[in-house]
Simulated assay, not measured.
Amino acid sequence: MAYEVKGVVARSKGAPVTVETIIVPDPGPGEAVVDIQACGVCHTDLHYREGGINDEFPFLLGHEAAGVVSAVGAGVTNVAVGDYVVLNWRAVCGECRACRKGALQYCFNTHNASQKMTLADGTELSPALGIGAFVEKTLVHSGQCTKVDPAAPPTAAGLLGCGVMAGVGAAINTGAVQRGESVAVFGCGGVGDAAIAGAKLAGATTIIAVDIDDRKLEWAKKFGATHTVNSKNTDAVEAIKGHTGGFGVDVAIDAVGHPAVFEQAFYARDLAGRVVLVGVPTPDMTIELPLIEVFGRGGATKSSWYGDCLPSRDFPMLIDLYLQGRFPLDDFVSETIGIDDVDAAFEKMHHGEVLRSVVVFK
């Protein structure tokens, strides 16, 4: 029996989203239906609405979500009805060349549900990041469900599904921040502040937040920034060197995804330092660097895909740290909203007024 629920749909490029009736099929083999309790409003959802991901409209938006499994299909063993889960978009296949090498965090063939959710007239929907969670119930592959401790409220837990995990993982997994190291994070939105929190968690002792908005720099201090630099008014590279004995940082993280910012991160690191790109650039962006500088500075330049996370390993760990009071998930939640308020949340995000608006389902 299919379910009729309400969800947020982007029908065409740049158009306001609409709340519509969504038809969610019973789960087939390997699939699960999840009753969504809360879902964060991520910049990726705005990219979908603006046609910045692809043009496979209409989209069922939302993907940073937590909820309870309400039905499972044949052959599902990793979750059961009643399990409290955070949804992820890296349901590892176990068979691709990355998985066969033991690098499951780079799985090149992650699973999604085989069946399609539709509008009431039968029009098939493209779920954002294979999830689609601005909806009362959603259909996913069971591997997209990661069980976590139900003591964590869904408003906080769901944020691990994308932006927070991307930032934390950029610091801990990709950047491999060590105790006593120095870190600079460029861009202090949700992903950047999560990278700052991740650097603090890893034991970095100097954490420099860089942004052009003083309000965001104040937010960054809550997550562990020891120094702040407004790059609108100050040469960020020189300021960072000033905070690190003239050498630069061990790890520089670009959470913006812009060539000018990446270049700052590249030059703001110490010799043999690491540069991590976790901000998502647009397809038309290019960068040019002197090859002798790439060679002469040594170290590593890396891209961070979803924080190079393994959800089954990282989500429960971060939830446990949150419940111990060691990881400030609640501080990312700027406001809770209803399903009708997503477009307004996009505007607040665009103007830098929030870290995360979170849709709460009654």
Results as ranks from 00 to 15, higher is better:
Ala236Val: 10
Ile53Gln: 06
Val191Thr: 02
Glu50Asp: 15
Asp149Pro: 10
Leu60Ser: 07
Met285Tyr: 14
Arg326Ile: 00
Lys116Arg: 14
Gln144Val: 02
Thr286Val: 11
Gly158Cys: 05
Asn112Tyr: 11
Met349Pro: 03
Asp121Ile: 05
Arg90Trp: 06
Val68His: 08
Gly187Phe: 03
Ala300Gly: 06
Asp214Asn: 14
Thr282Met: 12
Thr118Pro: 11
Gly203Met: 11
Ile240Phe: 03
Glu335Leu: 08
Lys221Ser: 05
Glu20Ala: 08
Asn173Gly: 03
Leu125Asn: 01
Thr286Glu: 14
Ala225Gln: 02
Ala220Asp: 06
Val164Asn: 00
Asn88Ile: 07
Gly130Lys: 06
Gly75Gln: 08
Val276Pro: 11
Met165Ile: 12
Glu181Val: 07
Ser312Ile: 10
Gly122Thr: 02
Ser182Arg: 11
His141Trp: 04
Pro281Gln: 04
Lys222Glu: 14
Gly132Glu: 03
Phe262Trp: 11
Lys147Cys: 09
His350Ser: 15
Gly307Asp: 05
Ile172Val: 15
Val24Lys: 09
Lys232His: 12
Ala32His: 08
Trp219Arg: 11
Leu355Thr: 04
Val33Thr: 13
Lys13Gly: 01
Arg274Met: 11
Gly273Tyr: 13
Leu277Pro: 02
Val359His: 01
Gln105His: 15
Val34Cys: 08
Lys13Leu: 03
Leu355Asn: 05
Ser12Thr: 10
Gly73Val: 07
Phe332Ile: 00
Ala204Asn: 06
Ile292Ala: 15
Gly190Met: 02
Lys13Phe: 08
Ile253Phe: 13
Val183Asn: 08
Met1His: 12
Ile131His: 10
Lys222Thr: 10
Cys39Met: 09
Ala199Cys: 04
Ser126Trp: 00
Ala345Leu: 07
Gly198Ile: 01
Val278Asp: 03
Ala252Arg: 01
Arg297Trp: 10
Phe295Leu: 11
Ile207Lys: 08
Val275Arg: 03
Cys96Ala: 05
Ala202Phe: 09
Val168Thr: 12
Ile36Glu: 10
Phe247Trp: 12
Tyr3Met: 15
Gly325Ile: 00
Pro154Arg: 05
Thr234Pro: 01
Glu64Tyr: 02
Arg97Cys: 12
Phe247Ala: 15
Gly163Ser: 13
Asp211Met: 07
Ala71Asp: 12
Gly130Thr: 03
Gly122Val: 03
Gly167Ile: 07
Val359Lys: 03
Ser357Leu: 00
Val76Lys: 04
Ala71Cys: 08
Ile337Val: 12
His111Trp: 06
Ala120Pro: 05
Pro259Glu: 14
Ala220Tyr: 00
Gln324Asn: 04
Ala66Phe: 04
Val33Gly: 02
Leu159Ser: 05
Pro150Ser: 10
Arg274Asp: 06
Val86Asp: 06
Leu277Glu: 14
Val191Asn: 04
Lys241Trp: 07
Gly307His: 04
Ile196Val: 09
Ala260Thr: 15
Ile212Arg: 13
Arg49Tyr: 01
Val135Cys: 13
Thr234Asp: 06
Ile339Lys: 08
Ala2Ser: 15
Val24Met: 09
Asp330Leu: 04
Thr301Ile: 15
Gln115Ile: 07
Lys200Arg: 15
Val359Glu: 03
Lys147Trp: 03
Met117Glu: 14
Leu125His: 01
Arg97Lys: 12
Gly52Arg: 13
Tyr322Ala: 13
Val17Pro: 10
Glu263Pro: 07
Leu159His: 00
Asn78Pro: 00
Asp320Val: 05
Leu323Val: 10
Gln37Asn: 01
Gln115Glu: 14
Thr286Gln: 12
Gly307Ala: 04
Gly248Asn: 00
